[in-house]
Design a protein around this nucleic acid. Structure first.
Lengths: 110, 110
DNA sequence: CAATTACATGGCTATATTGCCAAATACGCA
DNA sequence: TGCGTATTTGGCAATATAGCCATGTAATTG
């Protein structure tokens, strides 16, 4: 049931895993607006360049972004616009979480 | 730019992280068809019950599934149907990957 | 109440991830 | 050619994750 399609689920999990990091989510959202070079992303996120470079490498390896070297710098862009649909759904999960939390608080404060 | 919304990105990343595992993806897909008890999922996936139980706990904590104890067993169900939209997009990423791979092969075999 | 079934939890080990620093590489320019 | 800038890569330490086994707990059955 699962074992036969294991490879398939692993492949999909890899893509999700590549997205499942705060900085990488930010990068995806930012790239939606247009291509950005590594230095721009580094500046916006505020961690070491090498760290950002590795995040970008992760996203690239997952097939989510593409890189384009122009002159001195490397520009990254989204390859898969539909990624953005994810966010609405993730938001709805977060809303549910918030509701849960509120419910718990209501019980506690009774 | 990023630091101000860090918490927000972390929250979203948590949800994605909860999905980013082969077994958990399988569980989500399976639950789309209807609720399942832990024993059914365990049987289908073929690893230790305790492992499945922890996966379900992860999904529950992320707000993706809900549990319902009835008698001896615990049934899990999807709380967020939209999760399924993810898969189409993930598939499209995988297709891109396949294209990339084919392109590399074409170059190599030249 | 004892035994069984279904889950959950704690503990442990192996492995993966993250982020920093340092070093290597690539490019443009004087 | 030599320098400065942009980016990638290797190495390392800290932390997180996955899965197994053993154990604990709750409900069912006899």
């Amino acid at each position: 049931m699962f074992q036969e399609h294991k490879k398939h689920f692993e492949a999909r999990a890899k893509v999700l895993k590549a997205m499942a990091h705060p900085s990488r989510l930010f990068i995806i959202e930012e790239l939606e607006k247009g291509e950005r070079c590594v230095c721009e992303l580094t500046e916006m996120i505020g961690v070491d360049v090498s760290t950002i470079s590795k995040h970008l490498s992760t996203l690239k390896q997952a097939g989510i972004v593409a890189d384009d070297k122009r002159g001195n710098q490397v520009f990254y862009q989204l390859r898969v616009p539909c990624i953005l649909n994810f966010f609405d759904c993730v938001e709805s999960v977060l809303e549910l979480q918030a509701q849960d939390h509120a419910a718990v608080l209501a019980v506690v404060s009774k």
